[in-house]
Write a protein that binds this DNA or RNA. Sequence first.
RNA 1: GCGCCUGUAGCUCAGUGGAUAGAGCGUUCGGCUCCGGACCGAAAGGUCGCAGGUUCGACUCCUGUCAGGCGCACCA
Length: 562
Amino acid sequence: MENIVQKAKEEIKDVVLKALNEAKKEGLLNFESIQDVEVEEPKEKQHGDLATNFAMVMAREAKMAPRKIAEIIASKMNTSGTFIEKVEVAGPGFINFFLNQNFLIETLKLIHKRGKDYGRVNLGKGKKVQVEFVSANPTGPMHMGNARGGAIGDVLASILDYAGYNVSREFYINDAGNQIEKFGYSLEARYLQLLGIDAEVPEGGYHGEDIIDRAKEFLEIHGDKYKDVPSEERRKALIEYGLKKNIEKMKEDLALYGIEYDVWFSEQSLYDSGEVYKVIEELTEKGYTYEKDGALWFKMTLFGAEKDDVLVRSNGVPTYLASDIAYHKNKFVTRGFDWVINVWGADHHGHVAPMKGAMKALGIDPSRLDVVLMQLVKLIEGGQVVRMSKRTGKMITLRDLIEEVGKDAARFFFNMRSPDSPIEFDLDLAKQQTNENPVFYVQYAHARICSIIRQLEEMGVKIENIEDVDLGLLKEEEEVDLIKKLAYFPEEITIAAKTLAPHRITRYVIDVASLFHSFYNSHRVKGAEENLMKARFALILAVKTVLKNALDILKVTAPERM
RNA sequence: GCGCCUGUAGCUCAGUGGAUAGAGCGUUCGGCUCCGGACCGAAAGGUCGCAGGUUCGACUCCUGUCAGGCGCACCA
């Protein structure tokens, strides 16, 4: 068993269905077909630990008032040998279930037994899933949007890993196409300027300081060797150097941010291998393309898009759409991913329908592709919105962010909100955030537990075998609430994985910390009667395990002291 | 004009079709001679943008509408 809440829910379904059939046999209820039994967690404590709306759902079928049905089912229930302590019929026809002490005991035993694996579930059954995120243009440093995408994508990947998927993290390097050309012209202009030659960064080029830095480095290595060669040769050398250097820096910065990719995938490689041309051919053979104005168009409207789009420009150069289709075919067909998740900025949402359409055209089920769209980050400084642009060079980089607010706070902050929610990132607040940031609240709980554990160990208190501890002594309200929250961790992972909602984990871990602090302020571990002390020791060890595991998912450090 | 996202407490945000809509910050009041006060408890604070609809039940789903953000290139 890995998910005790799931087990309790299944017991309830089982008990309800048996009671239902029993009632039918006795002629108390009459129905032809039955609905699914859904078990949910009531918001109100007084409504029990778990509840089902089954009687209400069955009302129409059984032609009876829901409350009456609930009462009949409740009266026919046999709950022996289950986690169910008490059953109540309430409200319009809810059946509420209260769980017994054994549920709490088994929860703590489970956590002790599974340790660092507590929380892992086998939802994914080893299915291959790829999470592609950040994929920033390698033409300059990464910005706040990339920082958010990195935090979301990386945590999403961890969640899916915990949920039993075989996860691969991927960074797609846009090292081909128009932006790279502009990158080359921009570098060239800076290089020539450094050599005293009059040159302008072109319209739409990159004006940032980083471009000048690259040009200077290039000059140091090669001197004026590229001064008098043809522009094309000069740009090729500059691009080669600039890309290599930028990608190295991105790897470094992302590593500082706690992100390690399994695969760095080059767009250019899709051209080199011919995959771009092959996929264009495939679409053409299937009759999904046509020529107009000298360009080759993809009939996306056949697959749900609003309008057709260009695959190959009239100058013969394929568009980003063509290479992206080839890229996704590579993911699904060549590399055999069962499921692909892309984390994109909301400004790319128009690209979702075309990609799904293209997958359909290639015979790939588009439901295997999920795109998590995150709203962009709005940067506030001095109460003013800071306009950021790579082209003007005005920006706060990922590196700046890590240096100013720290990896832990940044990752936690970006995962506190739903990807759908736009973030206003107040720089002034972030810089002085040390005191109000919830990440410290959670870390504090962990450090506090570690401190108690150290003291208990010094006193020689030890838990040799969890079976020898009388966990039934944990009956205080704060203890019970805390244990129940711990029991939900695997369920939380499951829901976060199903709904691709990384922010659930930060909220969960805050809840755990909060319940722990409440417990701490009401009851003592050290100094309690010996058996109770041991039971509470076991409890805080379990809390520590859950905090640590959840923080590991977020890749936020769980300090022993702070 | 069309499409996507967002409108929930003073602020920042949660809320798998369920019962009395939650948390943090801020405000007010209170709590360690104590296992770590970076903590805890209590109070105040809401027409869930607006209007219809679906149903036993809607913050949640549908339609319309208003407001903000973002898209709608032979850029990515």
